[in-house]
Design a protein around this nucleic acid. Structure first.
Lengths: 355, 355
DNA sequence: CTGTTAGCGCTTTCAT
DNA sequence: ATGAAAGCGCTAACAG
């Protein structure tokens, strides 16, 4: 039981008022570093060192202090520690949602790397109608030592606050040559254009786009459309779905498109989940992919060639985005040089079937 | 720009040493509540009240203080606030993984409800080989005001620490009549038995189980097997997969099972993702569900009858688990009575196709 | 290697 | 309705 055996207190000084106050408080509150120090017969700072800088303490001292800590079940108070040291041990990360596996992968990676480095991840879900602003203020009041943001579109207030906080900031999942601080992302425009060129090369002229209402999907779509236009392709059908795009919405989307009766050669979906739904719906109607039409997704699922031989997709190295972002942050926190301030991690179009 | 216009300081007292120290520190550090108080010509506590208990302050005072806050871009320090008030504003939640949509749904719900109530969610990913213990100690040192745990199997240390912390604890996703504190869950055993009886009733005698190596899946499986045994069914093939069960692993699982050549009538999968993979693999081999065999999943996906007409599944109200757990915690934090300390939220077997 | 002193920035009393 | 004083539990910066 984590109760303090008061009798063991050595070197009882004569500080009646204050000390009595403390011991009466003790009955209801938790142990403090002071208590441990007293029980171990050392100064508070020594206990602190045992916990944080054991290299500065004699092995014997460590042992005796550690024994008291174990016996009492003392749990340090990091609110106090953080206030005194001005290091909260927190890193904030804002992602739109956990519904999308891409972000989940990033979050898991961040979590792993930060935990290993002794930091705790403070996760913010901004949602698709971005609530980033309100969140940012409340997050910053916990004094994170660094912040990771999804996307590059942030309000002036957010930018201002982050700049004022003077902490490392990484933006991910988007591209701009002029980030707030650091960036690990890729260009949604380039992706749109690349898929457009692929479709054109394959001879597809009647094209379809199924996309969730998401800013980044829109970036891809605009560039896709523009590039197609430049290539002389104007026959484009667009189907918008709710956000986030899911398997079910994909099925429904294809059903709607087929209902309209307009023929098409290829569909570009804003996520693999949507693409998966589209393919399943096609299959259930006896259509063959890619014989009847081609499908290209956008890498939020881990479909290997063997599980979905017909699905082409745009592949992003999600995990690497997380790793690079986390490492950039840690480097900065350790005053180490970071390799590059702006990293365009690129993408790859994986062609499958005869797409 | 959030710089402090020192000249505006009214009522400049004569405290040379300390004040000079502060103003020289100012150039590199962020604003404090003290600074705001000075600029607004009020005591620090008044600024604090404007922020936390505006009902105790005159509207005019609020306005003038708020103006300074807005102009300077002051961000309160909740480490200091938490230390002084003994309220961190943090609630910790431990889940095994975000790979499983069920937990994602719970986490999103918790996040929403806690945020709305002014708390921040501290998310812990324990992983499947449970690392709960190590995490718990570090989490507790941030002084969360409540803790949510997944499952009911916790180490003595964890239980001890939580008890010592004297904060509300909710365990979810499992069932026991004697939780640490509160519980919102369901019985995996009951599920196993219910599916066993379903299979038996349908006349299935050659049965297959595809499951990820997860403690709770194992609970279901044991009960499933036991109940089947009691019903006289002993012809059971088990295929174990990695954790977490995914679409791909489901496909692979069915492939392996078919390779063995043992005939079967029905498969019980430990997750819908696995079930989905199984069904897809079957389809790609020209088999029909449920004509060739029946499939039952476990609700981690949102497959409506229209998207997967043949898939039967065990459905859990994930979101409600999150809601009930969050509300129980908030009730306790507000010293309100909680309806029930232990809630068995139950489950439902949704039968589709002719399963 | 260990201790002393003085805060970190905020809120809790208890006055006024 | 507002303020003064006294910490919350810990660590930085010096000493020794």
């Amino acid at each position: 039981m984590p109760t303090v055996p008061q009798k063991e207190t050595e070197q009882q000084e004569k500080l009646p008022a204050k000390e009595n106050l403390r011991s009466s408080r003790r009955s209801t509150d938790s142990l403090t570093l002071q208590d441990i120090a007293k029980l171990a017969g050392v100064a508070p700072i020594t206990v602190s060192r045992v916990l944080n800088r054991p290299d500065l303490v004699t092995p014997e001292t460590i042992k005796s202090v550690q024994k008291v800590i174990d016996r009492t079940g003392y749990v340090p108070n990091l609110l106090a520690g953080g206030l005194a040291s001005r290091r909260s041990g927190l890193i904030a990360a804002m992602v739109p949602s956990l519904r999308n596996m891409m972000f989940v992968q990033v979050v898991e990676r961040l979590n792993d790397i930060f935990n290993a480095a002794g930091y705790k991840l403070l996760l913010g879900l901004t949602g698709y109608p971005q609530r980033e602003n309100e969140l940012m203020a409340t997050f910053l009041s916990r004094r994170p030592e660094a912040v990771l943001l999804t996307g590059v579109n942030h309000s002036p207030e957010t930018r201002q606050r982050l700049l004022a906080a003077k902490i490392p900031v990484v933006e991910i999942w988007d591209y701009t040559p002029t980030p707030i601080d650091m960036l690990v992302g890729f260009s949604h425009e380039k992706i749109g254009r690349a898929v457009a060129r692929l479709f054109h090369r394959k001879g597809f002229r009647r094209i379809c786009m199924v996309m969730a209402k998401d800013r980044r999907a829109l970036l891809r779509f605009r560039a896709f459309k523009e590039e197609l236009g430049e290539l002389g392709v104007h026959d484009l059908v667009t189907h918008m779905t709710r956000t986030p795009g899911t398997f079910r919405l994909g099925r429904e989307a294809l059903a709607r498109i087929l209902d309209r009766g307009q023929p098409f050669d290829a569909i570009f979906c804003s996520s693999d989940s949507l693409a998966h739904g589209v393919m399943t719906e096609a299959q259930s109607r006896g259509m063959k992919i890619p014989d009847d039409f081609a499908v290209v997704g956008f890498g939020d699922l881990d479909f290997s060639a063997s599980t979905f031989p017909a699905l082409s997709t745009v592949s992003i190295k999600h995990r690497e985005v997380g790793s690079l972002a986390a490492e950039a942050i840690l480097a900065r926190l350790n005053n180490q040089p970071i390799p590059e301030r702006v990293v365009d991690i690129g993408f790859e179009i994986i062609e499958r079937g005869s797409t």
